[in-house]
Design a protein around this nucleic acid. Sequence first.
DNA 1: CGGGCGATTGATTGCCTTCAAACGTGGTGG
DNA 2: CCACCACGTTTGAAGGCAATCAATCGCCCG
Lengths: 213, 213
Amino acid sequence: MMTAPDSDLITFGPYLSFPGLRMRFDRNAEVFGEGEAADFIYRVVSGAVRTMRFSSDGRRQILGFHMPGEIFGVETGPTHQATVEAVTGAEIVLVRRSLLEKAAADDVRAARCWLEFTASHLRRAQDHAIILGRRSAAERVAAFLLAFSNQGARSSELDLPMSRADIADYLGLTIETVSRAFSDMERRHVIDLPSSRHIVVRNRSTLLDLQAA
Amino acid sequence: MMTAPDSDLITFGPYLSFPGLRMRFDRNAEVFGEGEAADFIYRVVSGAVRTMRFSSDGRRQILGFHMPGEIFGVETGPTHQATVEAVTGAEIVLVRRSLLEKAAADDVRAARCWLEFTASHLRRAQDHAIILGRRSAAERVAAFLLAFSNQGARSSELDLPMSRADIADYLGLTIETVSRAFSDMERRHVIDLPSSRHIVVRNRSTLLDLQAA
DNA sequence: CGGGCGATTGATTGCCTTCAAACGTGGTGG
DNA sequence: CCACCACGTTTGAAGGCAATCAATCGCCCG
């Protein structure tokens, strides 16, 4: 597929677009680290990234994944609050944050777009908290697949860019538990697993039931 | 203590203040429900409130508590995303959301205050997700006490307004597990429990260790 | 063909939940 | 003033779900 003409822009809502610099990150490369100065904002062109935080004892919690088109790394404070790494090889567009700051300082519509963006992330974080706080392993994995099938492909075929370890650290589970949940779903003909990262949703309504929203 | 003179205002950052209407809510009374029109913004004057969401099967996840002085119920979309109830009897100030919208549309500084407010909530939600995803029961309860002792009283004495059930639904645990965690801490002389909702932190550094941040 | 890594599967452990009962306290009515 | 009741909390015992420990499988790449 050809690269879209706006692929080196970061577009915030209907009004603002900024020209950016495109960079390539290898699999597992760090885009930025927690505590670093937040001088840029980012957009995924191709590939996928994960945002995450670590405990002092090394445990990892993945806060979310960002797919092509999505903007990430936007802060209101001076530093990044999380670490972001490339899940797969990824192309990322960078824009100086000062451009966004300037736009938001000059134009309330720009400021509003930024606000809406942050509010949508807040909503996602709250949904995530509900999954982590009150759902069983099977429910978490079902919810993950449904969320991913909504944001990603339109069809019932999903290509997961991330490993079982990534999914586990996103859902607050272990690799083995995630794997068993997938196997159970396959055994029950809810999904097919032609390969470990390619998933065919066979029975979406059962998946919705499993999720127990 | 006398009521502060600004107690019927909602103050957003250093610039904006709105006069509001004060209302009283009984214990467990609903301030607003998920899905209702978000026509007002709210501030706790006295007492405490909880924001929460329900699964279809009735499980409850508490997203957060709001203490006196805190603003809640601010949405960018048309409806509330969560239900809010009074934890104790509470005095709440209401302000028409249109006032905030107007201010943010007229003044980028006002818009910025709103953005900062939402960003701070996003940060809280992410911290919450980490607690729910990767921490043991003892670690969760320790983190809860530390967070509450920071936002609430300055000293080592805490008066919890909420029940064990509220704490459990905030931390993704059961009542019994929360109770056992408190009892363990008391047995280990980390805290005293003169009554079930009054807590004296005896050994803050052990609490910090327990939290395993 | 061999090596390495991610994923799956199996066996066991352990933490938290569930079920159950007792305790304590605050409020109400006798 | 005290007895009693209701409700929140604590504690105990048992069970279950996910974690841990361990081995095998499968696939990609050299």
